[in-house]
Computed example of a mutant assay.
Amino acid sequence: MKRYAVLTGDIVDFTSLNNRRREELIGDTDDVLKNWVPRPEDAAIFRGDSFQVLFEELDLAIIRSIQVICWFKKQATQANPMLSTRVSLGIGGLAFKGKTVLDSDGEAFHLSGRNFDQMEGGELLRIITGDEKQDERLAVLLMFMNLVISQWTPSQAEVIYWVLEDQNATQEKIAGRLNIFQSGIAKRLKIAHWKEMEKAIKYIAKELQKV
């Protein structure tokens, strides 16, 4: 049976934004999420500050999970320093695919939604596969990953967002996009422990293929 990944998340501290900024953020986020999937209907924002995305590629799902956390973190400001997100990634089969992601159903949706509701304070990312031993291993790794990610500054998150957006891009190319020196990119990645985080992401991607 083919397995899918369902990403369920919400925007932390969304209500602290003014009306205009909330509208802009929702519109921009909707564009980003829909650009990540072949079928735009497989990504949706609902209840104002919640979102859900259906992925067919499991390795891509973990990358996008980290990236969407960066998407919100990089937009935090002095006025709204706590702007962030929580993400629950469920891995499993589908019962059926509806006209949109919100009309679809199956194990992946149940795991994602149920575990999102159980996320604890400070937990940014949770991954559930339904395999007990697998989930225990991932939970231990994610404890450390969440600690690292929670320390990322908006500028560090911005660099990592673009690293994940185009994994073939050089540091020079990203520096040009952000109008900073290449050394600044390298410094942000080092302080963010990106070398170690990248290995963890690749490990999870391989693990998800085993379930």
Rank of each mutant, 00 (worst) to 15 (best):
M1D: 09
R3I: 14
V6C: 11
L7M: 15
T8M: 13
G9C: 08
G9Q: 06
D10K: 03
T15R: 13
N18Q: 11
N19Q: 15
E24I: 08
D28Q: 14
D28H: 12
V32G: 04
L33R: 07
K34R: 15
K34E: 14
K34G: 14
N35E: 15
W36H: 13
V37L: 11
P38D: 14
P40F: 02
P40R: 01
D42M: 12
F46S: 02
F46P: 02
R47I: 12
S50M: 08
E56L: 07
E57M: 10
L58G: 08
V68S: 10
V68Y: 08
C70Y: 05
K73S: 15
K73A: 13
Q75Y: 09
A76L: 03
T77Y: 00
A79L: 09
N80M: 00
L83F: 06
L83V: 06
S84G: 09
R86I: 02
V87T: 02
G90V: 01
G90M: 02
G93K: 12
A95V: 14
F96W: 13
F96K: 09
K97A: 13
T100K: 00
T100A: 07
L102K: 05
D103Y: 10
S104H: 03
A108P: 04
H110D: 11
D117N: 12
I127L: 09
I127D: 03
T129I: 08
G130A: 00
D131E: 10
D131A: 02
K133T: 11
K133F: 12
Q134D: 10
D135F: 07
D135T: 07
R137T: 09
A139T: 12
L142Q: 01
F144P: 00
M145Y: 00
M145N: 05
N146Q: 02
V148S: 07
S150V: 13
W152G: 07
S155E: 14
S155G: 05
A157K: 04
W162S: 04
V163H: 04
E165C: 04
D166Q: 08
Q167K: 09
N168Q: 15
T170H: 08
Q171F: 10
L178V: 01
N179D: 11
I180W: 00
F181T: 11
F181A: 09
Q182S: 00
A186W: 08
L189V: 04
L189F: 02
I191G: 09
I191Q: 06
E196K: 00
M197V: 13
M197A: 06
I201W: 01
K202M: 06
I204G: 00
Q209A: 11
V211A: 10
